[in-house]
């Protein structure tokens, strides 16, 4: 039963590509948002926090629909990007990546924010008195010290991206070879008679991917913590 069909391989590779790209793009924004929430006081902080967490609490279909409205071909952002930069999200794998990034974002930010909050602020002050500007302090002190939390955040985002279904299918549909991820492919299998074998194969694959990612993350995190624990 582990002879995967070409279509299944396509779905697997597409899923991985979408998840990796989504995580990669969400990472810098996630780090920035987490740091801002952990360290800065600014007007509208509560509102910002709320917006960051919206995709976590809203039904995924709603998120997907909002993405369709804004990033779709006729959406105000989508039409602008298509016209000026030639970037199209609607019904493309890039759209799936966008949906996954948005859905994974709150989880990512949560983990990273905790990590930034746990690092000793006075170390940042010490760096300041030694002449490091806030930006340099961020890269030399805050970021390395929060590294284990950033790995956790990235993995959570990646896992969410792999599992994402509702927002993706609403935003970019279920097009084999373009937007059909593992989840969407399994869903398709369950909709046809005798699709059980295929669904099970893909289920096994997604379990393997998820476990590999979790174990990998655990190893990286342990390494990072051992490095920091020299302190």
């Amino acid at each position: 039963m582990f002879d995967l069909s070409a279509a299944e391989w396509t779905a697997i590779l597409l899923s991985l590509r979408i998840a990796v790209v989504a995580t990669f793009w969400a990472l810098p924004f996630g780090i920035l948002a987490a740091f801002a929430l952990a360290r800065w006081q600014f007007p509208g902080r509560m509102l910002f926090n709320g917006i960051v967490h919206l995709p976590l609490v809203m039904p995924p279909v709603v998120t997907g629909y909002l993405l369709l409205l804004s990033f779709g071909r006729r959406g105000f952002i989508g039409s602008f990007l298509a016209e000026h930069f030639g970037i199209v999200f609607a019904f493309r794998w890039t759209g799936a990546a966008l949906a996954c990034a948005v859905m994974g974002f709150p989880l990512m930010v949560r983990a990273m924010r905790l990590s930034f909050e746990a690092t000793d602020r006075r170390l940042e002050q010490a760096a300041g008195t030694l002449g490091a500007s806030p930006v340099v302090t961020f890269f030399l002190v805050s970021l390395p010290l929060a590294f284990p939390g950033i790995i956790v955040g990235a993995i959570l985002g990646f896992a969410r991206a792999l599992g994402e279904f509702g927002a993706t299918i609403t935003f970019v549909s279920n097009i084999p070879g373009e937007t059909q991820t593992i989840s969407a492919a399994i869903y398709t299998y369950t909709q046809v008679p005798e699709g059980d074998a295929g669904a099970l194969r893909l289920t096994a694959v997604s379990i393997v991917i998820a476990l590999t990612a979790l174990i990998g993350a655990e190893l990286i995190q342990r390494r990072a913590e051992r490095w920091l624990a020299k302190s």
């Binding site: 006075r122 170390l123 002050q125 010490a126 390395p144 010290l145 490095w227 020299k230 302190s231």
Partner: peptide, 11 residues
């Protein structure tokens, strides 16, 4: 500034 409890960078 030399702090009360050193604040060396642990990393």
């Amino acid at each position: 500034l030399v702090f009360q409890d050193s604040h060396l960078f642990p990393h």
